[in-house]
């Protein structure tokens, strides 16, 4: 029964069908399927398929946007269900896209996946300054600060965050994870970030490792 919902969820995301996706998310939760399973086994394979086809030139931004919008709707539904009831707290994470960068989709998926994995997450949105990352981390008592940069011109903000954390003596207090299309492990090594996330699910894995350390 779960398998059938997962398969239909995947198809709905590939089609960019927001209504059917939302309906399937509700149905799945009603039937007692864990939110994280719905996301990981149903909807994520769908959006990954769309991502692959986008990379191959089989489909284009219009289709990707419709699928990402459908995905966002599903994630909101699943998150809402998970915020009620007992939470298994894995750790506290703040995430944001760096200052000067207005891209949002990848980071938003990372926020959702982290929440689905039992983290407490504060999403700072996009165009977030170094100072604000640090202020919010202090206020939220975060374990991890995650930054996303989609532009070569804004990657420097990730470096500045590392420098500022060092200056303020906060480098050990918060672990840092960086991501975004032009970002690499090499960049993480160079600037001294604690981890590099290749994509949203890799980000979850890396953040789990960081908080266990």
């Amino acid at each position: 029964m779960s398998e059938e919902i997962f398969e239909r969820a995947k198809e709905a995301i590939i089609k960019g069908d927001a209504d059917t996706s939302a309906e399937l998310a509700r149905q799945g939760l009603d039937k007692g399927i864990a939110g994280i399973d719905l996301i990981n086994k149903g909807f994520i394979p769908g959006i990954n398929d769309v991502g692959d086809k986008f990379g191959e030139g089989q489909l284009f931004l219009p289709e990707l946007i419709l699928s990402a919008n459908a995905m966002q709707g599903v994630i909101d539904i699943v998150n809402a269900s998970m915020e009620i009831g007992e939470k298994q707290n894995q750790g506290r994470v703040i995430l944001g896209t760096v200052e000067g960068d207005l891209h949002d989709i990848g980071k938003t998926i990372a926020v959702s996946l982290l929440k689905a994995n039992g983290f407490e997450v504060k999403d700072l949105g996009r165009d977030v300054s170094v100072d604000r990352f640090i202020e919010e981390a202090e206020a939220f008592e975060a374990d991890v600060i995650g930054t996303s940069s989609l532009l070569t011109t804004t990657m420097e903000v990730q470096k500045k965050l590392e420098e500022t954390l060092k200056e303020k003596g906060l480098k050990g207090k918060y672990k840092t994870v960086i991501g975004g299309a032009p970002v690499t492990q090499r960049w993480a090594d160079r600037i001294g970030a604690d981890a590099y996330a290749a994509d949203a699910s890799d980000g979850v894995r890396k953040i789990k490792e960081l908080v266990e350390k």
Partner: peptide, 13 residues
Amino acid sequence: FDKTPRGFFTMMG
């Protein structure tokens, strides 16, 4: 335009 296996397309197709 981006080069795809199916020829050149803009990101919007």
